[in-house]
């Protein structure tokens, strides 16, 4: 009903504000922390009033961490670069492999097709720690430990099942007649795949790509075991803030802000692809 009284509207606004505060509180708190020194953060009682400082960011970007116990070199910017490299390569690789595979699973019913698709999904069920031990042994034999190639290979195992299953659903939603019509118009199946199926599943591919990027970005255990210091992503690099002289809360907060930024920007950019419902109006309404 569109007739709502003023009380209703005020109430709705108040409720919405409360919900937003509740969900955004941790993020806002971290943002505030990143502009405070450790002493300001840890003072008792806590206070909202402080003089903002850029020390934490300076320390991260310059790579010199000044603690009460002395100065410490950290490779945070390098870690950030590693995260971007690993996640991007893994997602691109998983898209190249996963989108055609998803199409095959959606359109063709071949022998064991359902079993293969399920096996791929089951990669996501296994606890990472269970896989880790055999994996690191194999990687040592193959000489893949502490290489970008090895890490990307492991990372795309996180991304592939997600992409496969999300994109498969989008392909299944496209009426086969749309593709049939393009085939009958004289185009090969490969052209039909690139000109019809991929554009129409675009929003799904974008969503799956973004989601798997976030999963890769947040991965911790694989990188912890399989990568040495110079190839570590931010998730592992953040361990450096747990120093002998205590935890550097200010820098941790600043590191979180910096490491969230790329995914946030990507999500904002991808949003228009996600929202655009291209397949609407394809067949009769």
């Amino acid at each position: 009903m569109e007739r709502s009284s003023i009380i209703e509207r005020v109430l709705r606004a108040v409720l919405l504000t409360l919900i937003v505060i509740f969900f955004l509180f941790p993020i806002v708190w971290i943002l505030l922390m990143s502009f405070q020194t450790n002493e300001q953060i840890l003072r008792i009682p806590p206070s909202l009033s402080f003089v903002p400082t850029l020390e934490n960011y300076k320390a991260l970007i310059s790579g010199h961490l000044l603690t009460s116990a002395g100065s410490l070199d950290i490779a945070f910017m390098r870690n950030l670069g590693n995260s971007v490299l690993l996640s991007t390569c893994a997602v691109v690789l998983a898209l190249i492999l996963g989108v055609p595979a998803a199409y095959a699973f959606a359109r063709f019913k071949f022998w064991l097709s359902e079993d293969i698709a399920f096996t791929l999904l089951s990669f996501r069920f296994a606890p990472p720690l269970l896989v880790l031990l055999p994996l690191s042994l194999y990687f040592q034999d193959l000489g893949l430990v502490d290489t970008y190639v090895g890490l990307i290979w492991v990372y795309q195992l996180i991304a592939l099942p997600l992409i496969l299953w999300i994109v498969r659903g989008y392909f299944e939603d496209i009426s086969p007649d749309i593709e049939n019509a393009y085939r009958i118009a004289g185009h090969s199946w490969l052209r039909t795949f690139f000109k019809i199926a991929v554009p129409l599943a675009g929003p799904g591919i974008a969503a799956a790509g973004l989601l798997s990027f976030i999963f890769c970005w947040n991965n911790f255990v694989f990188a912890l075991v399989l990568a040495s210091a110079d190839k570590q992503p931010v998730t592992v690099g953040a361990l450096a803030f747990v120093t002998a002289s205590g935890i550097q809360y200010g820098q941790v907060a600043a590191a979180i802000v910096l490491s969230v930024t790329p995914t946030l920007l990507l999500a904002l950019y991808a949003q228009r692809w996600l929202v655009e419902g291209l397949s609407l109006g394809a067949v009769k309404g």
């Binding site: 749309i178 019509a181 009958i184 199946w189 129409l200 291209l278 394809a282 067949v283 009769k284």
Partner: peptide, 20 residues
């Protein structure tokens, strides 16, 4: 012979227009 080599025209009941 695949659909693209049969040289026929076809109209579908649900129109099957390319939405993009």
């Amino acid at each position: 012979s695949p659909p693209d080599k049969r040289g026929i025209g076809m109209a579908f009941q649900n129109f099957a227009l390319f939405p993009h």
